[in-house]
Amino acid sequence: MPRVQSRRSFLLGLASIIGLSASRPTRVFAADSNSSVAFTSDLAQDYALSLLPIVDGSANLEIEQIVPVCQQIGLICGYEISVTREGSPYGYLILDASYPGLLKEITLGDTILPISASLSNAISTYSGQQATNPTVLISYNDIEYGTLVPGTRDCVTNYNNIRSVPIVTEKGIAPQSNNPTSWDAVIINEDDLMLHFQIDDLNGIPFRGVSESLVEARTNKYACVVSALYAVSMHYGLTSSNANQFNPDYYKEIWNVTGTTTYKTNDQGVEYGSTIIPDGIVPFKSLAAQKGRALNTQFFGYQPQFAQYRATIDQGNIGLYHMWINSRNSEGSIKLSGHTVTVTGYFTGHNGSSGIELQWLEVFDGWNTYPRAINYATPNMVKLNGTVFW
């Protein structure tokens, strides 16, 4: 969720917005999270209602609709607020949390339609479908906005351009693709998810992992299974649970005992490894025993059940999730791509508008230090299996 300065301070600062909006805005970001608040649609509405009398003294101005505006990476950055006067269209405002004063654009006047309405007409023209208002706008740049044409992978824009769909959906979150060709379409930030789903049940183990960049800098190696098993080691006391006390020698020890082999080396000399699953688990258990921790494991075959991970987390334990997709490389060719993550939690929820229920795994993805999320029901993964520890 985008954040803005405190509710009181930005409402008191309305007078300065008029001056700011006259010049090209500079993008800035909040430096102090303790003095910021989530920029919700309710807050955007309050802001617009306070702003409208200042910029236009017309009587009977009302807000008709608020539509989220997303960046192409799927994060909500602001809102389009459509305005009516005496029941007739009277323009719109675009509020953006990254703009000083929040006001990115304001266009008011008789019969002026909001961008969402023009995109609704564009959808109808392009697809032959009955016009429907978009549930989210995609911001491509300062002046061009688009929205997904239902039932397609195309976006139409207010400049009548047709773009391929970026990594957002109508609900504004990275898609759980029907045929995912990149890991960005499978593993997403939890904040993006929480914006659009009512969470019904959750449990997780507080965890901060070791990033790929740190691993590479300290070991000159990286393998997802090794990083996942290092995370398991952090949880079960085989190495420090403090990510700042990363032990490169122990990482290399896991690499060696699991039979991880180098499949490529980059220009900087970093080796990238491949580990056979589940063959590497048995020697890892032996390594743990040598260090004084007897670990039990259970290997889940194809398509492990969500309930199995749920029970594991509820018991205070963690596991691995092994996944493969048909990945598209930079030349456009499709190849099989595997990745292993550490499962540190779960949550279930439903979409507020559709009521569709989803199950999500909270994971340490091996690339970042913070937890991320995977839709457990992501279809057309090539093969799935898992390992849990206790």
Rank of each mutant, 00 (worst) to 15 (best):
Q5A: 03
G13Y: 01
L14K: 01
S16V: 01
S21G: 06
S23N: 09
P25N: 06
T26L: 10
A30G: 07
V37Y: 03
L43Q: 10
Q45I: 10
P53I: 01
G57Q: 03
E64K: 13
P68F: 05
V69A: 11
V69W: 04
Y79I: 02
S82A: 14
S88R: 04
Y90F: 15
D96Q: 01
D96T: 01
S98A: 13
Y99A: 06
L102Q: 08
I106T: 06
L108G: 01
T111K: 01
I115L: 08
S116W: 00
S124K: 00
Y126D: 10
Q130T: 14
I143E: 14
I143R: 06
T157E: 02
V186I: 06
V186A: 04
L193H: 12
L195E: 15
G209C: 05
V210T: 12
S211N: 02
E212W: 01
L214C: 00
A217L: 07
T219S: 10
K221R: 12
C224T: 03
V226R: 01
S241V: 02
N244G: 10
P248F: 06
D249W: 04
G269N: 08
G273W: 04
I276S: 15
I277K: 06
G280R: 04
L287A: 07
T297Y: 14
F300W: 12
Q303C: 04
F306K: 08
F306G: 08
R310G: 04
R310W: 03
I313W: 14
Q315A: 15
G316V: 02
H322R: 12
N329Y: 01
F347K: 14
T348C: 11
S353K: 06
I356G: 07
L358S: 14
W360N: 14
E362T: 14
F364Q: 13
N375M: 10
Y376G: 09
M381P: 05
V382C: 04
V388F: 08
